[in-house]
């Protein structure tokens, strides 16, 4: 599939104190960013676990970005630092799995940086577009009868696959 016809799906785990507000600011200022970005609001990026990032990729996301506060400005002191450690761990795991490690990225942004959010989001979506569709089939079977997380719901609005 060519980069022109491929419409990626990107999950953005955004801290409500910075990136989520920055995305809101971008919207209010009519600064557009790609519709590929599906935002998940978190109280802090320290809430984003390795497992949730993997599940997003397993459930069909072509890329995952974790967007936290600027270094040293986390409202909970170290949440964004922990998030970066986890994203680094995920990128190592992706290499072992056989996926491109560029499919997961951590960015740091403040609530006042609406334009920069749009810029960084666009840059990541372009990176994912160049990588092409994730080889993981959408809604791959996971979970089961013994207490697993259950079969993943398919992501909506997926086109060009």
């Amino acid at each position: 599939m060519s980069p022109e016809t491929f419409k990626p799906e990107v999950v953005a785990f955004c801290c409500r104190h910075c990136a989520y507000a920055a995305a809101d600011l971008a919207g209010g200022a009519r600064v557009s960013y790609p519709p590929a970005i599906k935002i998940v609001e978190l109280p802090c990026t320290g809430r984003a676990s390795v497992l949730e990032i993997l599940h997003a990729l397993e459930d069909g996301a072509d890329g995952v970005v974790v967007a936290g506060c600027l270094p040293g400005t986390c409202h909970y002191l170290m949440g964004n630092t922990h998030a970066r450690q986890r994203v680094d761990h995920v990128t190592e795991l992706l290499k072992k799995i056989g996926l491109e490690d560029q499919r997961a990225r951590m960015i740091n942004i403040s609530a006042a940086m609406g334009a920069q959010f749009a810029e960084k989001a666009t840059e990541f979506v372009n990176t994912v577009r160049e990588l092409g569709p994730s080889p993981i089939a959408r809604g791959a079977c996971r979970g089961g009868p013994l207490g697993g997380p259950g079969k993943a719901p398919a992501m909506d609005g997926r086109e060009g696959r």
Binding site: L54, P135, G148
Partner: peptide
């Protein structure tokens, strides 16, 4: 999750219940 995705990347599928 890693095992399921790794098998998918290899062009096969693996069910792993937890």
């Amino acid at each position: 999750s890693s095992l399921r995705m790794a098998r998918e990347v290899d062009g096969d599928s693996l069910t792993v219940d937890e």
